[in-house]
């Protein structure tokens, strides 16, 4: 009886140690992969930082109308953000390569699914970037146009327009990432409608006085009383 127990214990220990021993190369491979990826990421980070600094990337980003990118960046520097993102991507890739070294079905399918998801993430990032550029451009166009038309609520219109574009962009990015598509659609509808309604209310209430003044001026003006402005620009 005791012999059987001893044998069972021995067998289980052997099995455990054998299983553990089979995992050790995988762990070592993971560690090596992480080490190499950290080293590679550091080198790439340094190169990217220098390269982007030499081409004055921060200033260029600001000129391209992506100043909001600076707001999200560490130390308000898009250079750090871009080089850091690339470095992180290299570390994540190293980690995934290390995980794959375990050669088990589970880790392989995990890696496969993660890699399959990468295009969605890249697509979402591209959508967000383009959306931010378009939002900035449209907001500026609206702001300048409204100021040149002497509209007192130009800033409000501009901010509202920017938010409208950004809401559409974020919703598109989330749908692209396949994150709670139903909720996103519903939330998008509510937010978009809400912003349009708020803008309509704000502009309507804000211009009430303007319309009243304009109507009063028109009412006071007698027919044939049109005063031609003498200014000639060109």
């Amino acid at each position: 009886m005791w012999g059987q127990v001893k044998q069972a214990l021995y067998q289980s220990t052997t099995r455990f140690v054998t299983r553990l021993a089979t995992l050790v190369p995988g762990f070592i491979a993971l560690l090596v992969a992480l080490l190499i990826s950290f080293l590679l990421a550091w080198i790439v980070w340094m190169i990217m930082r220098r390269l982007l600094s030499s081409i004055r990337f921060d200033e260029r980003v600001s000129r391209w109308g992506l100043s909001s990118l600076a707001e999200w960046s560490p130390q308000n520097s898009p250079t750090l953000l871009v080089s850091g993102t690339i470095a992180c991507a290299i570390v994540v890739a190293g980690f995934l390569i290390g995980i794959a070294a375990f050669n088990s079905d589970m880790t392989s399918s995990l890696v496969r699914s993660i890699f399959a998801y990468v295009p969605n993430v890249v697509g979402a990032i591209i959508i967000l970037t383009i959306g931010a550029v378009v939002a900035r451009y449209v907001a500026r166009s609206v702001l300048i146009g409204a100021v040149n038309l002497n509209l007192g609520y130009a800033h409000l219109l501009s901010v509202g327009t920017r938010w409208l574009v950004m809401v559409v962009t974020v919703a598109m990015a989330l749908v692209h990432l396949r994150i709670a598509a139903g909720i996103v659609e519903l939330a998008f509808g509510i937010l978009f409608g809400g912003i349009v309604f708020a803008l309509a209310l704000a502009v309507g209430l804000g211009s009430k006085e303007l319309v009243t003044k304009s109507l009063e001026r028109d009412a006071k003006r007698t027919p044939g009383d049109t005063i031609e402005e003498p200014l000639r620009h060109l």
Binding site: V147, G152, E229, L231
Partner: peptide, 18 residues
């Protein structure tokens, strides 16, 4: 004809604000 200087100055002030 009279130039509406007030309107012109208003445009300038709006520009300064926004």
């Amino acid at each position: 004809g009279t130039v509406e200087i007030d309107r012109l100055v208003n445009s300038f002030q709006l520009g300064i604000r926004d």
